[in-house]
């Protein structure tokens, strides 16, 4: 039996079909989760995909964190379920308190869509074991509020504990502190990042297939858990 990975759809979510496709490409089974249902349908992992949940009104992710589906997500994450937040999903996980810090408007004030080089800084999380430490990967970045901000003690903690998962290389696209593109929870099970690995699963439709590694990694983690 293959692993089942849930993909949440909020009103205004856009990249849910892409996240589900990436899950399918990795060999796992994608399961649609609906924002209004406090039900994870027994999935083994959850992806909070990109988009503009609730129109990003008030503040990115600020409304979505109150959606009924987030209650079981927080519970499951507390018990070690792998959770991946991509772009708006990363913003939602920060608002929900699963990850520290916040995402703010890009420093040049424009939406930026580009193929972005990232360095994998931590290859021990539930979502990055398939990468070599220090590997450089090419993944689309597309966001208007992607600047990662946190206070200095938080940044020190993240850096000190190796919780910066991916970092921008070849120029900081949005003013993120320490060039941070993605971070993880202390146990490495919850990962949030601004770039979109689900858009780099096939060189036909993306700049590379470098993003697939994240989905394979989760599948490995889940298969190992089932085996043990």
């Amino acid at each position: 039996m293959t692993a089942r990975i849930g993909v949440i759809t909020f009103p205004g979510t856009l990249d849910d079909v892409d996240a589900a496709r990436a899950v399918r490409y990795s060999g796992a089974e994608p399961v649609d989760l609906w924002h209004a249902d406090a039900d994870l349908k027994g999935v083994d992992a959850v992806i909070v995909p990109g988009g503009f949940s609730y129109g990003d009104y008030l503040r990115c992710g600020a409304i979505a964190r109150f959606a009924p589906v987030m209650t079981p997500v927080l519970e499951a994450a507390g018990k070690g379920m792998p959770v991946l937040g991509i772009c708006n999903g990363f913003q939602i996980l920060c608002e929900a308190g699963l990850l520290p810090g916040a995402l703010v408007r890009n420093d040049k004030l424009h939406f930026v869509c580009r193929d972005q080089w990232l360095r994998v800084e931590n290859n021990t999380t539930a979502w990055t074991t398939r990468y070599d430490a220090g590997a450089e990967i090419l993944i689309p970045l597309k966001s208007g509020e992607g600047g990662y901000m946190a206070d200095q003690p938080t940044l020190d903690t993240l850096e000190g504990e190796g919780r910066v998962v991916v970092r921008y290389v070849g120029g900081n696209p949005n003013g993120s502190r320490n060039d941070i593109a993605g971070i993880c929870s202390p146990n490495g099970r919850v990962v949030g990042l601004m770039p979109h690995p689900e858009h780099a699963i096939d060189a036909l439709t993306g700049p590379s297939d470098d993003g697939l590694g994240m989905f394979y990694s989760a599948l490995d983690a889940l298969t190992a858990a089932i085996a043990s």
Binding site: D15, V17, R21, H110, F111, C113, H199, T205, G206
Partner: peptide, 10 residues
């Protein structure tokens, strides 16, 4: 054009 999302929906 880099202000436009060209990837969404894959």
């Amino acid at each position: 054009t880099q202000q436009y999302d060209r990837y969404v929906r894959g």
